[in-house]
Design a protein around this nucleic acid. Structure first.
Ligand code: SF4
Ligand code: SF4
Lengths: 158, 158
DNA sequence: TTGTATTAAGAGTGCTTTATCTGAAATTAT
DNA sequence: ATAATTTCAGATAAAGCACTCTTAATACAA
Protein backbone atom coordinates (compact mmCIF):
# COMPACT_ATOMS: atom_id res chain seq x y z
CA UNK A 1 0.00 0.00 0.00
CA UNK A 2 1.17 3.42 -0.92
CA UNK A 3 0.15 5.16 2.30
CA UNK A 4 0.17 3.66 5.77
CA UNK A 5 -3.13 2.88 7.43
CA UNK A 6 -2.53 5.69 9.89
CA UNK A 7 -2.10 8.11 7.05
CA UNK A 8 -5.22 6.99 5.26
CA UNK A 9 -7.24 7.47 8.41
CA UNK A 10 -5.77 10.90 8.89
CA UNK A 11 -6.63 11.92 5.36
CA UNK A 12 -10.15 10.61 5.67
CA UNK A 13 -10.66 12.48 8.92
CA UNK A 14 -9.26 15.68 7.45
CA UNK A 15 -11.54 15.45 4.45
CA UNK A 16 -14.48 14.77 6.72
CA UNK A 17 -13.77 17.87 8.75
CA UNK A 18 -13.39 19.93 5.61
CA UNK A 19 -16.72 18.66 4.37
CA UNK A 20 -18.62 20.07 7.32
CA UNK A 21 -20.55 23.31 6.73
CA UNK A 22 -18.61 25.22 9.35
CA UNK A 23 -15.22 24.67 10.89
CA UNK A 24 -15.96 24.04 14.55
CA UNK A 25 -14.74 21.55 17.12
CA UNK A 26 -15.71 17.99 16.38
CA UNK A 27 -15.05 15.23 18.86
CA UNK A 28 -12.74 12.49 17.70
CA UNK A 29 -15.33 10.00 18.85
CA UNK A 30 -17.79 11.38 16.35
CA UNK A 31 -15.30 11.29 13.53
CA UNK A 32 -14.31 7.74 14.39
CA UNK A 33 -17.93 6.65 14.38
CA UNK A 34 -18.62 8.32 11.04
CA UNK A 35 -15.57 6.80 9.40
CA UNK A 36 -15.80 3.42 11.06
CA UNK A 37 -12.36 3.66 12.58
CA UNK A 38 -11.22 2.62 16.02
CA UNK A 39 -11.55 5.62 18.28
CA UNK A 40 -8.34 5.00 20.18
CA UNK A 41 -6.34 4.55 17.06
CA UNK A 42 -7.71 7.63 15.38
CA UNK A 43 -6.93 9.63 18.47
CA UNK A 44 -3.29 8.75 18.13
CA UNK A 45 -3.28 9.58 14.45
CA UNK A 46 -4.89 12.96 14.91
CA UNK A 47 -2.40 13.81 17.61
CA UNK A 48 0.18 13.87 14.84
CA UNK A 49 -1.88 16.38 12.94
CA UNK A 50 -2.32 18.69 15.91
CA UNK A 51 1.38 18.50 16.71
CA UNK A 52 2.11 19.38 13.12
CA UNK A 53 -0.08 22.44 13.49
CA UNK A 54 -2.72 21.30 11.05
CA UNK A 55 -5.38 20.87 13.69
CA UNK A 56 -6.16 22.62 16.91
CA UNK A 57 -7.60 20.65 19.78
CA UNK A 58 -9.62 21.47 22.81
CA UNK A 59 -10.21 19.23 25.78
CA UNK A 60 -13.27 18.91 27.89
CA UNK A 61 -16.97 18.81 27.07
CA UNK A 62 -17.84 20.26 23.69
CA UNK A 63 -14.18 20.03 22.86
CA UNK A 64 -12.61 18.18 19.99
CA UNK A 65 -10.45 19.01 17.05
CA UNK A 66 -10.81 21.52 14.26
CA UNK A 67 -8.81 22.62 11.26
CA UNK A 68 -6.16 25.11 12.25
CA UNK A 69 -6.36 26.94 8.93
CA UNK A 70 -9.04 27.45 6.30
CA UNK A 71 -9.46 24.23 4.36
CA UNK A 72 -8.32 26.01 1.22
CA UNK A 73 -4.93 26.43 2.79
CA UNK A 74 -4.28 22.83 3.73
CA UNK A 75 -3.13 20.49 1.01
CA UNK A 76 -3.34 16.75 0.84
CA UNK A 77 0.44 16.73 0.89
CA UNK A 78 0.42 18.58 4.21
CA UNK A 79 -1.59 15.83 5.84
CA UNK A 80 0.45 13.02 4.32
CA UNK A 81 3.62 14.76 5.33
CA UNK A 82 2.53 15.13 8.93
CA UNK A 83 1.77 11.45 9.36
CA UNK A 84 3.87 9.40 6.99
CA UNK A 85 6.55 11.95 6.32
CA UNK A 86 7.58 13.19 2.93
CA UNK A 87 9.38 10.02 1.94
CA UNK A 88 6.83 9.15 -0.72
CA UNK A 89 7.67 12.29 -2.60
CA UNK A 90 11.40 11.87 -2.24
CA UNK A 91 11.82 8.16 -2.23
CA UNK A 92 13.14 6.08 -5.04
CA UNK A 93 11.07 3.52 -6.81
CA UNK A 94 13.63 0.90 -5.92
CA UNK A 95 13.91 2.08 -2.35
CA UNK A 96 17.61 2.72 -2.50
CA UNK A 97 19.08 5.14 -0.01
CA UNK A 98 20.66 8.38 -1.09
CA UNK A 99 18.87 8.81 -4.37
CA UNK A 100 20.31 11.59 -6.45
CA UNK A 101 21.30 12.67 -9.89
CA UNK A 102 24.93 12.07 -9.09
CA UNK A 103 24.44 8.39 -8.47
CA UNK A 104 21.25 7.33 -10.17
CA UNK A 105 19.90 3.88 -10.80
CA UNK A 106 18.49 2.73 -14.13
CA UNK A 107 14.92 3.89 -13.74
CA UNK A 108 15.79 7.29 -12.39
CA UNK A 109 14.55 9.61 -15.13
CA UNK A 110 11.24 7.88 -15.56
CA UNK A 111 10.60 7.69 -11.90
CA UNK A 112 11.52 11.22 -10.88
CA UNK A 113 9.26 12.73 -13.49
CA UNK A 114 6.45 10.51 -12.23
CA UNK A 115 7.21 11.38 -8.66
CA UNK A 116 7.22 15.14 -9.17
CA UNK A 117 3.89 14.84 -10.88
CA UNK A 118 2.54 13.07 -7.84
CA UNK A 119 3.96 15.69 -5.55
CA UNK A 120 2.44 18.47 -7.58
CA UNK A 121 -0.92 16.77 -7.53
CA UNK A 122 -0.93 16.31 -3.76
CA UNK A 123 0.38 19.79 -3.09
CA UNK A 124 -2.31 21.51 -5.10
CA UNK A 125 -5.19 19.34 -3.96
CA UNK A 126 -6.68 21.22 -1.03
CA UNK A 127 -8.95 19.94 1.69
CA UNK A 128 -11.47 22.50 0.53
CA UNK A 129 -11.77 20.85 -2.82
CA UNK A 130 -11.79 17.35 -1.39
CA UNK A 131 -14.38 18.36 1.16
CA UNK A 132 -16.59 19.84 -1.53
CA UNK A 133 -16.48 16.67 -3.53
CA UNK A 134 -17.14 14.58 -0.48
CA UNK A 135 -20.37 16.47 -0.06
CA UNK A 136 -21.58 15.45 -3.47
CA UNK A 137 -23.79 12.47 -3.79
CA UNK A 138 -22.46 8.97 -4.18
CA UNK A 139 -19.09 9.88 -2.82
CA UNK A 140 -17.65 7.57 -0.29
CA UNK A 141 -15.28 8.49 2.45
CA UNK A 142 -15.24 5.75 5.03
CA UNK A 143 -14.12 2.17 4.94
CA UNK A 144 -17.52 0.69 5.28
CA UNK A 145 -20.29 1.20 2.80
CA UNK A 146 -21.93 4.56 3.00
CA UNK A 147 -25.07 4.91 5.10
CA UNK A 148 -27.78 3.02 3.33
CA UNK A 149 -29.89 4.97 0.91
CA UNK A 150 -33.42 3.50 1.15
CA UNK A 151 -34.40 4.45 -2.37
CA UNK A 152 -31.34 2.86 -3.86
CA UNK A 153 -31.92 -0.17 -1.70
CA UNK A 154 -35.35 -0.69 -3.23
CA UNK A 155 -34.18 -0.47 -6.80
CA UNK A 156 -31.35 -2.85 -6.14
CA UNK A 157 -33.26 -5.35 -4.06
CA UNK A 158 -35.06 -7.32 -6.74
CA UNK B 1 7.60 2.35 0.73
CA UNK B 2 5.93 1.87 -2.55
CA UNK B 3 7.25 -1.61 -3.31
CA UNK B 4 8.00 -4.32 -0.78
CA UNK B 5 11.58 -5.21 -0.06
CA UNK B 6 11.10 -8.55 -1.78
CA UNK B 7 9.89 -6.80 -4.89
CA UNK B 8 12.78 -4.38 -4.95
CA UNK B 9 15.23 -7.23 -4.71
CA UNK B 10 13.47 -9.04 -7.50
CA UNK B 11 13.57 -6.00 -9.75
CA UNK B 12 17.22 -5.41 -9.01
CA UNK B 13 18.07 -9.02 -9.79
CA UNK B 14 16.06 -8.92 -12.99
CA UNK B 15 17.81 -5.79 -14.16
CA UNK B 16 21.15 -7.29 -13.29
CA UNK B 17 20.43 -10.36 -15.38
CA UNK B 18 19.28 -8.21 -18.25
CA UNK B 19 22.48 -6.20 -18.04
CA UNK B 20 24.66 -9.22 -18.72
CA UNK B 21 26.05 -9.56 -22.25
CA UNK B 22 24.40 -12.88 -22.85
CA UNK B 23 21.42 -14.55 -21.26
CA UNK B 24 22.84 -17.64 -19.61
CA UNK B 25 22.38 -19.31 -16.25
CA UNK B 26 23.65 -17.28 -13.35
CA UNK B 27 23.76 -18.68 -9.85
CA UNK B 28 21.64 -16.91 -7.30
CA UNK B 29 24.67 -16.80 -5.07
CA UNK B 30 26.47 -14.66 -7.59
CA UNK B 31 23.54 -12.31 -7.98
CA UNK B 32 23.15 -12.00 -4.24
CA UNK B 33 26.83 -11.17 -3.86
CA UNK B 34 26.71 -8.54 -6.59
CA UNK B 35 23.62 -6.89 -5.18
CA UNK B 36 24.53 -7.25 -1.53
CA UNK B 37 21.41 -9.15 -0.69
CA UNK B 38 21.02 -12.15 1.60
CA UNK B 39 21.40 -15.21 -0.56
CA UNK B 40 18.67 -17.20 1.15
CA UNK B 41 16.21 -14.39 0.93
CA UNK B 42 16.89 -13.69 -2.69
CA UNK B 43 16.43 -17.37 -3.42
CA UNK B 44 12.92 -17.20 -2.08
CA UNK B 45 12.16 -14.06 -4.04
CA UNK B 46 13.41 -15.45 -7.31
CA UNK B 47 11.35 -18.57 -6.81
CA UNK B 48 8.33 -16.34 -7.30
CA UNK B 49 9.72 -15.19 -10.61
CA UNK B 50 10.40 -18.70 -11.86
CA UNK B 51 6.94 -19.81 -10.80
CA UNK B 52 5.49 -16.87 -12.66
CA UNK B 53 7.33 -18.01 -15.76
CA UNK B 54 9.62 -15.01 -15.96
CA UNK B 55 12.74 -17.01 -15.14
CA UNK B 56 13.86 -20.53 -15.86
CA UNK B 57 16.00 -22.33 -13.34
CA UNK B 58 18.41 -25.20 -13.49
CA UNK B 59 19.81 -27.11 -10.56
CA UNK B 60 23.23 -28.57 -10.16
CA UNK B 61 26.70 -27.28 -10.91
CA UNK B 62 26.78 -24.49 -13.46
CA UNK B 63 23.07 -24.14 -12.93
CA UNK B 64 21.22 -21.06 -11.80
CA UNK B 65 18.50 -18.87 -13.17
CA UNK B 66 18.06 -17.11 -16.49
CA UNK B 67 15.47 -14.93 -18.14
CA UNK B 68 12.76 -17.05 -19.68
CA UNK B 69 12.15 -14.56 -22.50
CA UNK B 70 14.26 -11.98 -24.26
CA UNK B 71 14.73 -9.00 -22.00
CA UNK B 72 12.88 -6.86 -24.48
CA UNK B 73 9.76 -8.84 -23.79
CA UNK B 74 9.71 -8.55 -20.02
CA UNK B 75 8.41 -5.35 -18.54
CA UNK B 76 9.03 -3.87 -15.15
CA UNK B 77 5.34 -4.35 -14.49
CA UNK B 78 5.71 -8.08 -15.12
CA UNK B 79 8.28 -8.40 -12.38
CA UNK B 80 6.37 -6.28 -9.91
CA UNK B 81 3.22 -8.18 -10.66
CA UNK B 82 4.86 -11.54 -10.01
CA UNK B 83 6.10 -10.58 -6.58
CA UNK B 84 3.88 -7.91 -5.08
CA UNK B 85 0.85 -8.48 -7.23
CA UNK B 86 -0.86 -5.86 -9.31
CA UNK B 87 -2.41 -4.04 -6.39
CA UNK B 88 -0.27 -0.96 -6.87
CA UNK B 89 -1.79 -0.42 -10.27
CA UNK B 90 -5.33 -1.03 -9.14
CA UNK B 91 -5.31 0.22 -5.63
CA UNK B 92 -6.82 3.39 -4.39
CA UNK B 93 -4.79 6.19 -2.93
CA UNK B 94 -6.85 6.00 0.21
CA UNK B 95 -6.70 2.24 0.34
CA UNK B 96 -10.43 1.76 0.31
CA UNK B 97 -11.76 -1.58 -0.84
CA UNK B 98 -13.84 -1.94 -3.95
CA UNK B 99 -12.65 1.15 -5.73
CA UNK B 100 -14.71 1.93 -8.77
CA UNK B 101 -16.34 4.65 -10.77
CA UNK B 102 -19.72 3.72 -9.38
CA UNK B 103 -18.73 4.49 -5.82
CA UNK B 104 -15.78 6.83 -5.90
CA UNK B 105 -14.16 8.75 -3.12
CA UNK B 106 -13.17 12.39 -3.32
CA UNK B 107 -9.75 12.05 -4.89
CA UNK B 108 -10.78 9.52 -7.46
CA UNK B 109 -10.30 11.39 -10.73
CA UNK B 110 -6.93 12.78 -9.82
CA UNK B 111 -5.67 9.52 -8.54
CA UNK B 112 -6.80 7.23 -11.33
CA UNK B 113 -5.21 9.40 -13.97
CA UNK B 114 -2.00 9.35 -11.97
CA UNK B 115 -2.23 5.60 -11.50
CA UNK B 116 -2.79 4.78 -15.14
CA UNK B 117 0.21 6.87 -15.98
CA UNK B 118 2.27 4.82 -13.59
CA UNK B 119 0.95 1.62 -15.02
CA UNK B 120 1.77 2.70 -18.52
CA UNK B 121 5.27 3.63 -17.49
CA UNK B 122 5.96 0.30 -15.83
CA UNK B 123 4.37 -1.70 -18.63
CA UNK B 124 6.45 -0.11 -21.35
CA UNK B 125 9.72 -0.07 -19.46
CA UNK B 126 11.44 -3.28 -20.48
CA UNK B 127 14.27 -5.09 -18.79
CA UNK B 128 16.24 -4.61 -21.96
CA UNK B 129 16.17 -0.87 -21.59
CA UNK B 130 16.84 -0.98 -17.88
CA UNK B 131 19.70 -3.40 -18.42
CA UNK B 132 21.22 -1.14 -21.02
CA UNK B 133 21.13 1.83 -18.72
CA UNK B 134 22.55 -0.23 -15.89
CA UNK B 135 25.57 -0.88 -18.06
CA UNK B 136 26.30 2.78 -18.41
CA UNK B 137 28.76 4.37 -16.09
CA UNK B 138 27.81 5.81 -12.75
CA UNK B 139 24.65 3.81 -12.58
CA UNK B 140 23.93 2.11 -9.36
CA UNK B 141 21.98 -1.05 -8.93
CA UNK B 142 22.70 -2.52 -5.54
CA UNK B 143 21.98 -1.33 -2.04
CA UNK B 144 25.53 -0.75 -1.09
CA UNK B 145 27.88 1.51 -2.90
CA UNK B 146 29.14 0.12 -6.15
CA UNK B 147 32.34 -1.91 -6.14
CA UNK B 148 35.15 0.42 -5.26
CA UNK B 149 36.85 2.14 -8.12
CA UNK B 150 40.54 2.39 -7.12
CA UNK B 151 41.18 5.51 -9.16
CA UNK B 152 38.23 7.31 -7.64
CA UNK B 153 39.35 6.14 -4.24
CA UNK B 154 42.69 7.83 -4.63
CA UNK B 155 41.25 11.15 -5.65
CA UNK B 156 38.81 11.08 -2.79
CA UNK B 157 41.18 9.80 -0.13
CA UNK B 158 43.00 12.95 0.81
C1' DT C 1 -16.32 21.10 44.42
C1' DT C 2 -17.60 17.20 42.13
C1' DG C 3 -18.60 14.81 38.07
C1' DT C 4 -18.26 14.22 33.21
C1' DA C 5 -16.50 14.68 28.63
C1' DT C 6 -12.73 15.02 25.99
C1' DT C 7 -7.86 14.91 24.20
C1' DA C 8 -2.78 13.42 25.49
C1' DA C 9 0.56 10.03 26.29
C1' DG C 10 2.38 5.80 26.42
C1' DA C 11 2.53 0.87 27.39
C1' DG C 12 1.11 -3.54 25.68
C1' DT C 13 -0.73 -7.17 22.23
C1' DG C 14 -1.14 -9.52 17.94
C1' DC C 15 -0.27 -9.86 13.04
C1' DT C 16 2.34 -9.31 8.86
C1' DT C 17 6.60 -8.73 6.67
C1' DT C 18 11.39 -9.53 6.48
C1' DA C 19 15.13 -12.33 7.11
C1' DT C 20 17.64 -16.55 8.51
C1' DC C 21 18.38 -21.26 8.71
C1' DT C 22 18.07 -26.31 7.71
C1' DG C 23 17.35 -30.13 5.03
C1' DA C 24 15.88 -32.20 0.68
C1' DA C 25 15.96 -32.79 -4.43
C1' DA C 26 18.25 -32.35 -8.78
C1' DT C 27 22.17 -32.20 -11.80
C1' DT C 28 26.89 -32.39 -13.09
C1' DA C 29 31.68 -33.84 -12.64
C1' DT C 30 35.06 -37.05 -11.12
C1' DA D 1 29.06 -44.66 -7.22
C1' DT D 2 30.49 -40.56 -4.86
C1' DA D 3 31.08 -35.89 -4.13
C1' DA D 4 30.17 -31.17 -5.21
C1' DT D 5 27.07 -27.56 -6.56
C1' DT D 6 22.91 -25.59 -7.04
C1' DT D 7 17.79 -24.63 -6.65
C1' DC D 8 13.46 -25.94 -3.91
C1' DA D 9 10.63 -26.20 0.21
C1' DG D 10 9.50 -25.31 4.61
C1' DA D 11 10.44 -24.12 9.59
C1' DT D 12 11.93 -20.61 12.56
C1' DA D 13 13.36 -16.14 14.35
C1' DA D 14 13.43 -11.11 14.37
C1' DA D 15 11.49 -6.70 13.29
C1' DG D 16 7.97 -3.52 12.13
C1' DC D 17 3.27 -2.10 11.86
C1' DA D 18 -1.57 -1.84 13.16
C1' DC D 19 -4.37 -1.77 16.71
C1' DT D 20 -5.98 -1.86 21.84
C1' DC D 21 -6.02 -0.53 26.37
C1' DT D 22 -5.01 2.14 30.51
C1' DT D 23 -4.00 6.16 32.87
C1' DA D 24 -3.31 10.99 33.06
C1' DA D 25 -4.36 15.86 32.01
C1' DT D 26 -7.64 19.44 30.89
C1' DA D 27 -11.84 21.90 30.65
C1' DC D 28 -16.67 22.62 31.31
C1' DA D 29 -21.18 22.31 33.93
C1' DA D 30 -24.06 21.78 37.67
S1 SF4 E 1 16.25 5.57 -9.96
FE1 SF4 E 1 16.51 7.59 -9.13
S2 SF4 E 1 15.03 7.65 -7.50
FE2 SF4 E 1 15.37 5.51 -7.95
S3 SF4 E 1 17.05 4.85 -6.57
FE3 SF4 E 1 17.93 5.47 -8.47
S4 SF4 E 1 18.51 7.56 -8.12
FE4 SF4 E 1 16.99 7.03 -6.59
S1 SF4 F 1 -10.55 7.80 -5.00
FE1 SF4 F 1 -10.95 6.29 -6.57
S2 SF4 F 1 -9.27 4.90 -6.34
FE2 SF4 F 1 -9.37 6.03 -4.46
S3 SF4 F 1 -10.71 4.83 -3.08
FE3 SF4 F 1 -11.96 6.30 -4.13
S4 SF4 F 1 -12.76 5.18 -5.84
FE4 SF4 F 1 -10.96 4.08 -5.13
Amino acid sequence: MMLSKSCIYGVQAAIYMASLPRNEYVSIQQIAAKLNISFHFLTKVLQNLTQAGLLISYRGPNGGVALARPSSQISLADVIDAIDGSDIFKECLLGLPGCGVADPCPAHENWTSMRSRLHHLCSTLTLEELGKRANQLNVRLANSRAPINPAKLLTEAR
